[in-house]
């Protein structure tokens, strides 16, 4: 399973960015091989449609689950259309912490 966390930077130690579409990076952890990679979110600077654009990007990467604080209506709809589950995380710490919370299974699905 691939878990994606919107991040302010490319490293798991960087802070999460709680605005899904406008986050500069996505950090993706694959539970099958325990690998973590980061991708730049090229949609982040757009004037509009950033949520759906970011969602399309994640769909293509085969992401199964997004853990985030704030996600707009369009982006949520887009993620769901791509079969991606969205989990709410309200913490403001590093990506690593959010990932831990997601793996522990304690987060609520949106």
């Amino acid at each position: 399973m691939k878990i994606c966390i919107p991040s302010s930077g490319p490293e798991p130690g960087d802070l999460i960015d709680d605005r899904f579409g406008r986050a500069p990076y996505f950090i993706i952890h694959d539970t099958n091989n325990e690998k973590t990679e980061s991708h730049r979110n090229d949609a982040a600077g757009g004037a509009g449609g950033v949520g759906p654009k970011a969602a399309q990007f994640l769909i293509r990467l085969g992401v199964d689950m997004v853990v985030t604080g704030r996600v707009g209506g369009n982006a949520l709809e887009a993620l769901k259309a791509g079969g991606i589950k969205v989990y709410l995380y309200e913490g403001r710490g590093p990506v690593r912490e959010a990932l831990k919370a997601a793996l522990s299974g304690g987060l609520k699905e949106q």
């Binding site: 982040a44 600077g45 757009g46 004037a47």
Partner: peptide, 12 residues
Amino acid sequence: SNSGLLVAEVKK
């Protein structure tokens, strides 16, 4: 044109 895009850019 692109003023919306520029606004997003300055905020970012």
